[in-house]
Amino acid sequence: MTVVAVHRPNVYASRLGRGALGFVVLLAAVVAGTCIGETPIPLTTVAQVLANKLLGAGYPLDPIDTGIIWNYRLPRAIVAACCGTGLAISGVVLQSLLRNALADPYLLGISAGASTGAVTVTIAGLGAGAVSMSLGAFIGALLAFLLVAGLAKAAGGGVSLQGTGQIVLAGIAGSQLFNALTSFIITKSANAEQARGIMFWLLGNLSGARWPDVWLAVPIALLGLLATIWYARALDAFAFGADQAAALGIPVRTTQVVLIGVTALVTAVMVSIVGSIGFVGLVIPHAARFLVGVRHGRLGPATAIIGAVFLIAADVLSRTIIPGQVLPIGVITALVGAPIFALILLRGRRTR
């Protein structure tokens, strides 16, 4: 009993310390994303703008600097953090449920389905204004996953999807199908100006992120993180297979439905705000496992922080790598993610 009494405070202190460190790193990333851009803004100016807006400090500042920081860069950095968190958490959940190191919303076609749903609502006018862009993206994401899962299960002869390669192959086919549907809808229903805007958005674009997007992205990202923490024990159990998870008392079907629904919702909302961004859900969970191990109680929060910092850094790079131009953020994540994807494939081949 004495050992337990001494050990518990140490465990809680360690968790509190890791949480505080993660919060400081995330805060520093958001501030850096606000300072760095096409035109660098000093940290003192950013601090004074935040003091004026949040505390009513009354520092005399240039209204242009205030507008750039408060109305453009700060919400953009926060949305980037939420998007990175949501997509990375979705990758953790899918990789655990499917026991597949290559599972993520982009490769499984969920992002493509969400894009199709969002474009169907906004461009084709499905729902006559009664269906929001995020709801359309959610419906598209769910349909995409159901189609991919059904195709993979049929290709595998009806066996479980866990640990099989069919789900990734089916995801690639599903992505191509939904990308083709998206292109068809844009070509048929959009004018030239709308088509240019949509195509740029589909590659990942944070330029339009504003405070209303923050109020939508933050709770959805927190929902994904909290769901991962709440189901951490179940996700740990799924590492041994669905049958073993059931033997450990995990309600397998309910857990799968809830977590797949949360994953589809998080992916859909992030896609509806910033477009389809690939490889975040694939790369970040592997980096987090390398740092903190495979237990989801630690893996979930670590993935969320790393994903947020990674996408903020990618957004900063997309604005500064070519002077006077802004690259789609999906280009940056693909340049980083594609080589790591290849390394994962080669590592998997060596371990077989």
Results as ranks from 00 to 15, higher is better:
A5S: 11
R8T: 12
R8F: 13
V11W: 08
V11Y: 06
Y12H: 07
S14N: 12
L16M: 06
G17K: 02
A29F: 12
A29H: 02
V31G: 00
I36M: 08
E38S: 14
T39C: 09
T39D: 13
T44E: 15
Q48H: 14
K53R: 14
A57P: 03
Y59Q: 08
D62P: 00
P63Y: 05
I68T: 03
I69F: 03
W70K: 01
Y72P: 01
Y72V: 14
V79R: 02
G86S: 10
I89A: 10
I89G: 01
V93T: 13
N100Q: 13
L102Y: 13
P105W: 02
G109H: 01
S111K: 10
A112P: 02
A118T: 09
T120I: 11
T120L: 15
L126H: 05
G127H: 04
A130E: 06
V131Q: 08
S134L: 09
F145E: 02
L146D: 05
L147E: 02
A149P: 05
G150H: 11
A152D: 10
K153N: 10
A154C: 09
G157D: 00
G157C: 06
G158C: 13
L161F: 03
L161K: 03
Q162A: 13
I167K: 00
I167M: 06
V168A: 12
G174R: 07
Q176M: 15
N179F: 00
L181G: 12
L181E: 04
S183T: 04
F184C: 13
I185P: 08
N191S: 05
N191I: 08
A192V: 10
L202H: 01
L203Q: 14
G204D: 00
N205M: 03
R210F: 05
P212G: 06
D213S: 11
V218L: 07
I220A: 11
A221S: 03
A227E: 01
A234N: 03
A237T: 01
Q244G: 03
I250R: 02
R253W: 13
T255V: 15
V257T: 11
V258T: 10
V258I: 15
A264H: 05
V266Y: 06
G275W: 01
I277V: 12
I277W: 03
V280C: 06
G281P: 10
H286K: 12
V292A: 05
V294W: 11
R295M: 00
P301E: 04
A308D: 09
V309N: 09
V309E: 06
F310Y: 11
D315H: 00
D315R: 01
I321R: 04
I322A: 09
P328A: 12
F341I: 14
